[in-house]
């Protein structure tokens, strides 16, 4: 197989707003056909990087290529090959779903007939055919997001840029958007998305770049990243009298060394296999005749990523409510 050229190539990009270095020397590149997730807290520089890549913003320094074309010297050629869904759904309330998609189709330069045909295809694909001829003001938040994301598909872009595609929508709609993104990649589109949720990047992305204060602080596959973080942690609440026996049983069951967290009065042990470790641990405790007061599986959160990588909470970081993680913890 011939070596493929990277579909996105960013080198030493700097962009400042006054005193703020929104992008402080970002470099990254990846191959076509994958999902690349840019993970970072509020103010990390995600949107700024997306704006640079989609020709909306000129960097102060650095090189940017998309689909093999220099973004700075030939932005119009880049625009024929990309699609953008910004951080907030940019669909017109007073147009119908179909009109929104058809408008974007015309602006991509499709003929009226092609536009009509492809808009119908796209609406079918995002399961909005039934609502297609209703004005968008009657749509739910999730439907708007999907429409916004899909409007660009009418131009059959090589690379889609999605800025926080699931922020602010309910878990059900989030699943719909995830499926749509998976479907997109299956059909050969490259996707670059930004997210504040590790869970989302984990589920969708082939490669993840963690951005913080305008710099990429680490990069790799989801597994590589988790190895760096040490994976999930099992926390067990145990009566003081049983603690020693329980720690012995947990050590035997997991092959790891449990520790007692004084402050929270929990026994913690690394859970390399996630739920598998949890089941093994509960069984071991049960056969030792110990009943825990509390069991919880903690997956590494974005907080942990920053704690591990920078030894520091990002300034002003508010942990994002992540229903997917919360649900998993509850069911554990």
């Amino acid at each position: 197989m011939a070596t493929t050229d990277p579909v996105v190539r960013v080198r030493d990009v700097v962009r400042t707003f006054g005193d703020v270095r929104a992008l402080d020397g970002v470099s990254l590149q990846f191959d076509p056909g994958i999902v690349y997730a840019l993970l970072g807290p509020n103010g990390a520089g995600k949107t700024t990087l997306i704006r640079v890549l989609t020709t909306l913003l000129r960097p102060d320094a650095g090189d940017v290529e998309v689909a093999g074309i220099d973004v700075l010297t030939d932005p119009t050629a880049v625009r024929t090959r990309i699609g953008l869904a910004g951080q907030f759904a940019a669909v017109d309330e007073y147009q119908t779903g179909r009109e929104n998609v058809e408008m974007v189709g015309r602006l991509y330069g499709l003929s009226a007939a092609d536009t009509r045909r492809r808009a119908a295809d796209v609406l079918e694909r995002i399961k909005l055919t039934e609502a297609a001829d209703r004005q968008v003001k009657t749509y739910s938040g999730g439907m708007r997001r999907r429409l916004d994301l899909a409007a660009s598909l009418v131009g059959q872009p090589q690379v889609m840029f999605l800025d926080e595609p699931t922020t602010g929508i309910d878990p059900r709609s989030r699943m719909d958007v995830w499926e749509l993104i998976e479907d997109l990649v299956a059909s050969g589109t490259t996707v670059l998305l930004t997210s504040q949720y590790l869970e989302e990047a984990d589920r969708l992305a082939d490669r993840i770049g963690v951005i913080h204060n305008g710099r990429i602080i680490t990069e790799g596959t989801s597994d590589e990243l988790k190895d760096k973080l040490g994976g999930a942690v099992l926390e067990v609440g145990i009566d003081e009298l049983d603690r020693l026996a329980a720690m012995t049983a947990l050590a035997a069951a997991t092959g790891e060394e449990p520790v007692h967290d004084q402050a929270r009065d929990r026994v913690r042990v690394p859970a390399r296999d996630g739920a598998g470790t949890l089941v093994a641990a509960v069984r071991a405790l049960d056969s030792a005749g110990i009943s825990p007061t509390d069991v919880a599986l903690h997956k590494p959160t974005l907080d942990d990523v920053f704690l591990a990588l920078t030894g520091d909470q990002p300034p002003g970081y508010e942990p994002a409510a992540d229903p997917a993680v919360a649900a998993e913890e509850r069911s554990a």
Binding site: R51, T54, T55, L56, T76, R79, T80, I82, G83, L84, G86, Q87, F88, A89, A90, D92, V104, L107, Y108, G109, A151, G155
Partner: peptide, 13 residues
């Protein structure tokens, strides 16, 4: 403010 202008500017129009 709604991001519509950004969308337009990202299109080959």
């Amino acid at each position: 403010s709604k991001g519509v202008i950004d969308r337009f500017r990202s299109l080959p129009m």
